[in-house]
Structures are given as structure tokens and as C-alpha cells.
Design a protein around this nucleic acid. Sequence first.
DNA 1: ATGTCGGCGCCCCGCCGACAA
DNA 2: TTGTCGGCGGGGCGCCGACAT
Lengths: 475, 475
Amino acid sequence: MNSELWHACAGPLVALPPAGTLVVYFPQGHSEQVASTLQKCADVPNYPNLPSKLICFLQNITLHADAETDEVYAHMKLQPVNAHDREALLASDVTLKVNKPQIEFFCKTLTASDTSTHGGFSVPRRAAEKIFPPLDFSKQPPAQELQARDLHDNLWNFRHIYRGQPKRHLLTTGWSLFVSGKRLVAGDSVIFVRDAKSQLLMGIRRANRQLANVSSSVLSSDSMHIGILAAAAHAVTNNSSFTVFYNPRASPSEFVVPLAKYNKAVYASQISLGMRFRMMFETEDLGIRRYMGTILGISDFDPTKWKNSQWRNLQVGWDECASGERRDRVSIWEIEPVMAPFFICPPPIFSIKRPRGIGMQDDETSEMENLFKRALPWLGEEVCIKDPESQNTVMPGLSLIQWLNMQQNCNSVLPNINLQPDGIRPLSGSLQNLGQTDSSNLSGLQGQYLQHTNVEFNASSLLQSQPLVQASDSS
Amino acid sequence: MNSELWHACAGPLVALPPAGTLVVYFPQGHSEQVASTLQKCADVPNYPNLPSKLICFLQNITLHADAETDEVYAHMKLQPVNAHDREALLASDVTLKVNKPQIEFFCKTLTASDTSTHGGFSVPRRAAEKIFPPLDFSKQPPAQELQARDLHDNLWNFRHIYRGQPKRHLLTTGWSLFVSGKRLVAGDSVIFVRDAKSQLLMGIRRANRQLANVSSSVLSSDSMHIGILAAAAHAVTNNSSFTVFYNPRASPSEFVVPLAKYNKAVYASQISLGMRFRMMFETEDLGIRRYMGTILGISDFDPTKWKNSQWRNLQVGWDECASGERRDRVSIWEIEPVMAPFFICPPPIFSIKRPRGIGMQDDETSEMENLFKRALPWLGEEVCIKDPESQNTVMPGLSLIQWLNMQQNCNSVLPNINLQPDGIRPLSGSLQNLGQTDSSNLSGLQGQYLQHTNVEFNASSLLQSQPLVQASDSS
DNA sequence: ATGTCGGCGCCCCGCCGACAA
DNA sequence: TTGTCGGCGGGGCGCCGACAT
């Protein structure tokens, strides 16, 4: 399975954690994917003794495509962990640094003419020039035979010709076989990728047409829903691993989140009612667009079954509500908080120690504290995330020292309403007394968010945190 | 969903228990169906506290066909029960009396010519005359427009013509649309049914071609396997119901067995090593053929995960081993014991009382005994099963009195080797002292089996039976 | 720049009886 | 009785530029 092609089909927002790193698994989100796939929301009871989130070691991850539909998905083999070695933690942090290689591809939504039996495929000019091998324009008409491999490594042959008045690029012979073979209809999309070896690859993305009742004839949806929970619970109990299928196109959100991404969002962001944020959405041509929104509430999505989960615990409203498809509940790691540079408040650090959850051994306490110390985002890594759209590096260096310095200059100008069940208190003195730092480069930060820290410090005051793995109440 | 069509597609051996009756559910068999569907045998651990068999009330049963493949399957809503009302028990017994209505249908395996684009469908002469509406043979050539509904109630139109030299029935116009629409290939079968209202129905049965890796892209096979167990266990714990999908074509055997059928097989049959038996198999044209075999062993199929299950606890050998596809392990209710009439030994009645299984309340004891008293097969029903192939009624009346009488005349001529974990003792005196009965009709019984009883008696001595629902050891 | 259409050539779908198994 | 084939007619697949958006 070609990784570039897989990611092109998955979309620009999908970033898979690499094998060997730590992730946070949300059974609730997994359930959502199953419900979304089955297009049916089963009323699944809470599963006894399964926490609302699990820290797991990602043993293995493989890329796949459905044999019938070409839909991309990933197998992830997860091992629930209580103790973590330094190596895995460091590897997990590194995931934030990865720059996706800029792959050459184009995506076109098929028109009625493209899919009819009357003719071939009209290739967008820029696409043909960027992706396809160059034509010999001395011939009349310029033409060539194209060969492209799909997600299953099957080879497809097309006649690529440049003709007509005005001139345009067309795929003729071979195209109809592809359309009927993949059962494409108008509205579906086709993706052409030129990989590192200049080979041509192609994938498809189907339109979100209702698949009526795709209910598998193998398992009842109830069994499926309970099955994913039971599999995870079994792995926790037996200290073994379990396998999940992540289907980025069907799943409303990723339910296996890199631990570093999770920690950064939860512990480095200031979330409060009324806060403005941005969030990335995918455009039709596989680009990225950001929409602005406001946090309207903070509460458990499902207080009875999944208590104290951070899964979609933010109720949000959107500035442009025209596209009503945007969700009204998101998770904290999905958003980019927008702060005016001098209106920043201290990050929320939980101070109330809760009773240990079921399945948490007492002697794990020090390990958990080590986990927090190491996995906190300001471990000294150099984070540099590129914006695939603008090609510009966003988030120029803002150190935690700089950020802390800002706290001294403005204390809680914005009202700090917080509905999270645990109390919040500002960072205690030892951290606030760090030295003054040049803040001349802060003026350009408006509309950006704190994503970059590169200072080490003694995080002892953070260790009174709420345990990350917390068993749900077995009521 | 038309029941006649569904059963025609399911095959002659499939008999579904009606809603409102009691059944025995075997999780192990359910697991086998899932493994068979996924063509992958996952190594699923034993599920804690789930017995190897569950008595359930069949709340509901509905017939379905897969939207993609037209494969038939059934939804069954099962409620695990501990106490049973008399009505359900009686209804369960009635299920043995049901004579399937003799439906008019024919089945043809498609040839290369049938599925090629070169021509239409060659209709077997007898089939056309029996199933299709009669042609007007005064016209030349005789022809008509046929309309048939498939499993999804879609209407298909065909031109039915009687022509050629020699004359033969053909489906021409419309046939190729059906073949391509259903994606039929040579080797698949098509079934035409004329229902009670003389309407034409049609279904398909696909050849057993390897579907490579049909692994769903939704759930891992591990999650599926554990899901079916968890769903059943959850229903037991919460006194609720669970839903299973029974796929008669994919499943090696039925895993939801009518309680009466189960009891009759377990308590009315004498099973011993070396015993000869017959078993029904399906022929290619949806007929029935019996094969002879010998019992080679009696033991738990999976002694570690499913202890004391009767699922496939008989190891068998077949007289005609040419067709190596016959299973080497079967369940007792699948076979027809073959006994020489004067070589019959007493039925095995378990006498060792075992500790109550997990989940068995003490106050259920009397209910369980009532269950056994009522569900035992000699409750006075008149069993009359027709052999669809020979059209003859097999098993003429052999009453329990007659059978018991035989016991008095021959005591254990055949060696009675029995490997079942529980001890076996003969029926105690009160039953053996029943009066002499005419046994003149026994001479024709050689090669048949005891399937018919119609006498009531005091079964008090049977009440020391092993509990039917028995929790697996939670080791 | 590209979606749709009329024109039209030719491939192959599909109906026929011949022939054989 | 019925599976496969050669013959062949016509419908529609598919390649072309025209034209519009």
C-alpha cells in the first residue's frame, strides 16, 4: 500500500501516529465511527470498567483499502499501558515535528460527462501538466498511453490525448473500464498522484451518498458496538493488545490521538466559555480551510456512559452557519484557540486529586507522574508545523518563558469562566518567577495560537494532575 | 420478504424456529459462523461467565437478504431465560410438528453459456413447465413476457420463448441485465419460485468461490468474535435481549436450535462409540441426500474455552469419504441414529448433580425441573416429518411405550461405551414396568431412528438431570 | 478552461438455428 | 434434453469537434 496515495485519499487533515508511539484511544469516538458506518446509532450501554480514554502503545499501524469500495482505512494494534518507557514518550513527542512530504496530486470531482458512456474524462489543464508525464507536442494530436496503479496495485491503462477546439487534455480509451470497474458515478472524485519515483497512482473518493442500509449481514450493530468496547476492555484486563480499524472518511473524528497532541491541547491551552477559535476543514479539492467559531459550553458529551471524557466536550457555535454540517461539539485537540497576545490567561492545571480509578495500581503512581512530566509538551522539542495550503511556516518561536512572561503583564483581562468538573488554579509561584524575555516578536501572533514551546523547566507543580487514565464510574 | 423464496434460497435443511418458542443458543457455533464468514479463525479467548449454551426465548425472527449479494440471513432476537411459562414450552414442542409447505421451485446452476454475453438463459424443460405460466403454443414461436420479483422485491422482466431446433425454453431479452446486475458468474445458481399466489419469484445462490479477504473494514475480526460473546453475556447480565444474524449459507451449522429438538436429541437418543448414524446433506439441486457414518469419539470440541458443550461433541467418520468436505465433528441433534430395533439401549440420563453454574439462582431449581418435565420430547405430540425428496412419510408411529418395551426384551447387547463427562444410568424401574405393547410393526424399522413418541408418563425419575444451562468454568 | 452535445463509425451485445453431447 | 457455436443485425459505446458557459 503506497503511503502517499493512501494519504491523498484520506485527505489533508488525516495524520496517523507512527508505530512505536503513545496514543490516547477514545472508545466513545470508536463507537461513533461504527455508528457512522452503519448509519445507525445504537443505544449501547456503558461497558463496565472501561475508562473513557486509554493510553496505548501503538504497536503497529498498516494502511489498507476496502477491496470493494477502495475506501481507505488503517489497522492499528494498540496495547494499553500503565507504565511507559522514556523512549516511547520521546518518540511520541517527535510525532509533532513531522512535516508531511509535499506530495504531487490532483483531485477532480467527476461530472456527468465524465461518468457517462458517451465519452471519456476531461482532465483539468493544470492537473495534466503537473501530474502526467509530458506529451510530445510535435505530434498531431499529442497523445500517449498512461499507466496508473490503484490502491490494490492493479494497473489501469488510459489513452491520454490533447485535442479538440479549444485544445484540452482527455482520457479516452480505458477510462470507461475504470468507471464501470470502480462503479463510479457523477459526484465521486478521482485522485491522481505522482509518487517519489514519478509513477502514476490513482485513488477514488466516493460522494457521501446514503448507502441506505449497509448493515452488515454478519453482526448486529449492537454486537459491533459492544464488540469494540469488549475488545478494548479485554486487552486492558489481560494486558494484551487489541486492533482497531480507523476509517478516516467514515469517522467523524479521529479517535486515536497522539499522546503528545492530546497533552499539548489539554494542558497548554486555555479553554474558557466564549473563547474564539479556528478549526480546519477539508475543501472539496482536498485543500484546507479554517472556520471561526466560539466556545459555547464545556461539558461531557455523554455524562452517563462516558463520564469525565474530553471527547467532544466543547459545545461550539460557528461564524458561518450556512454550512450546517459542521458539528456543534468538538474535542479540544481539534481546535486552534485564538488569543489576543495580551489577553492570555494561565493554562488550566487540575489540582484536585481524584480517587484512583478501577484498574489503577497504587504502585503506578510514580510512573504516571513520570508520564506527565515527560509527555508535557514543553519538553524541549522544536515544533514546526507547516500549513499545507500557504506553504508558510506558522507559529514562529514562542517560548514558554515568553508566554509566562506575558502572564505577568496581564492577569485575567478576559473573564475566565470554566465549567470543567475539576477546579483550576493558576500556576504557582515557581513558574511565574522566570526571567523577563524579549517579547518584541509577539505582535504578529494575533489570530495564531500557542503551539510552540522550547524551554525545559521543573514541572513539579504540575504533578498534582488528575490521572489521565481514569476508570468510568461503574454505576 | 417472501418466506417461501427465502427458504428456497436457504436450502432444504434450514428450518427456523418460530417466534415465541424456546431455543438453545450456542455461542461457540455463532463464533464459527463469524469465522466462516470472515474466512479466518480468530483465537478468541473464553468469555467470562458466558455459558457454552443458553436457553433463550425467541422474541422475534425476521428474514432478510444482503443488499449487495442477495445472500439470505435471519435476524433473531433472543432473550436468555431462567424461568419459562408453560405456553412457550408447549409452543416450542409444536415446532417439531410443522410440515413445511411443499413449495414449487426449481434451481439451476448457471453454465458458461448462461452467463456469457453471447446469449440468454437456457431453461430446463421441466422447470419451465412446472414453474412458469403456460405458453400459448398456437403462436409461432410461443413466447411471453415474464415478470419475477427478487428478494428485495425488485421486478425483473424477461422474454420467455420456446424455439430452436430441437425446441427448448429460453429467457432472452432482460436476462443479461439480471446477470450483470446480480454479478452472476458460471457456477452460481438461480432459483425460480412460484408462490401461493402463482407469482414468480427468483433468488440466487452463489458458488462457494473464495472471497479472498472479505474482512470488513469496520471491525477487526477479534472485535467481532468478542462482540457476539459480549452481546450475549450482556443480555444475560442485564436480563435483556440480544440479536444474532443467522446466515444459513455461510454458517457450518445452525447455532440456534429449537429446545424441543435439542432435548429430543440429547435425552431420547442413545449415543455410544461405534454407533452408526445417517445425516442429511444438501444436493446441488436443493434436494436432500443422506450419508452414513460412524461415531468415533465423544468429547468436547474445545475443552478449554467451551467446556461441557454439546456443540460438535461427536467425532465421526463417513462411509463415503470421497467428498472430503464432510465435517469430522457434528452435534448430536444433527444426526439420525441408526439402530437395529432389538439392539436399542436406554437413553442416557445424567444422574450426577453438578454445582449450580454462575448466574443460576437457587430458587430456579423447581422451574428448571419443570422445564425438563415439560420440554422432554415425549409430551404427547404427533411428529410427522416428510422427506422432501421421496415425498414419503418416514418414521411411522413408534411410541415410547413400544420403545420401552423393546428395552425389556434386549438389555445392552451392543457395548455401551460412553465418554461423556457425566455418568449415565438406565431408566429406573417405574418406567421399565410399563405394559407390553404390540411390536409387530418394528420389523421395518431397521435403518430408521427413533423420532416419534406419543405417550405421556410420569417423568419424575428424569428430574435429577444436569442443569441445561451451565456456566463455563471461569478459569 | 471545461461541460455537454450532435455526429457517426464500429464493436460487440444478443437473437437465431445448427450441431453435438 | 441442453450446452456451445457460427452467423449476423442493430443498438449503443465511445471518439471527434462544435458550441456554450
